[in-house]
Amino acid sequence: MLNYISRRLNLLLINAFILTIIAFLLAQWSNGQSLTDTNYIIDYVKYISAILQGDWGSSIDNRLILQQGLTAFASTLELCIISFITAALIAIPLGIFAGFYPNHFLDYCIMTIALIGLAIPIFWLAVITTMLPRLTGITLPIDGGISPIFEVPVVSGFMLIDTLLAEDLYQLNAFYDRLAHLFLPSIVLSFFLIAEIIRLTRRSITTVMKSNYIKAAYANGLSKTRLVLHHVLKNALPSIIHQLRLQLSTIISFAMVIEIVFSLPGAGVWLLNSIKEEDYLALPAAVLIISGFILLFSIFIDIFLMIISPLKRKSLYVD
């Protein structure tokens, strides 16, 4: 197992190295320098040491880019987390049901929903959702991260937490307002996530149901619920999580698109505005933050998978 972790960390280092090279190239390009300078290795080393010390430069209006980037990305993460929780709550039971009763009428219904969810383009769905108050009279907010009435000081970057911390200012009104602002965007993102998770769950569960130990469990006379909860889920989960991990970058990029449509103050809007204002220093910062996050998160997922799935513990090589 230690072998596995060390191999994994090796991969992380190599990936991180490549990332820093890409970020360095972007930074050079945004400063207008070309690579033909012979001391690019020295420049690279200087750049890396600056990065590691936390000096990522400042944007045009003199705010630290590291600060901006982290706050913006935290908002994107908030959206992803909320959407993920909503999607998982809905999709996993549906997927289990579809996996348990394959070729049942409801199974076909669920899979059709999943297919629709995968086929619909996210930005179109986001734009349609912004028109929801107009079309249906639902009074849910469609713009902005939080109502301008509430001026919540940024502590962690996760606005939900910040609004809870600012409880003395606004009681819980700011928190509810933030949730309401996140509601419609997270529904849009959940659409895609639900479709993904249903498919993954169903496939995983059908595979597990065909396996021998489930037959043995049946033969031992276990009831179906006990079966699901104790045997099927635990064995189906690793492959679902593994697949979702591969989708992480897609999810983040969808979240960024949704943010742009709903004007949430996240990484998508930050990058777009930086490029519009021709402040290209944000690009390497974004590469480092977002890709770095995905790398680190992948490692955590791998470690998590190792904990919950004993089968993975004996694997030597990272896949």
Binding site: T130, G137, P141, I142, I149
Partner: peptide, 22 residues
């Protein structure tokens, strides 16, 4: 007592925000 200006350049979005109470 509190006046807030919110710049929304997209006209359709402004309309939606009026209807949603924002």
């Amino acid at each position: 007592k509190n006046l807030i200006f919110e710049v929304t350049t997209n006209k359709t979005k402004r309309h939606s925000k009026l209807l949603s109470g924002e």
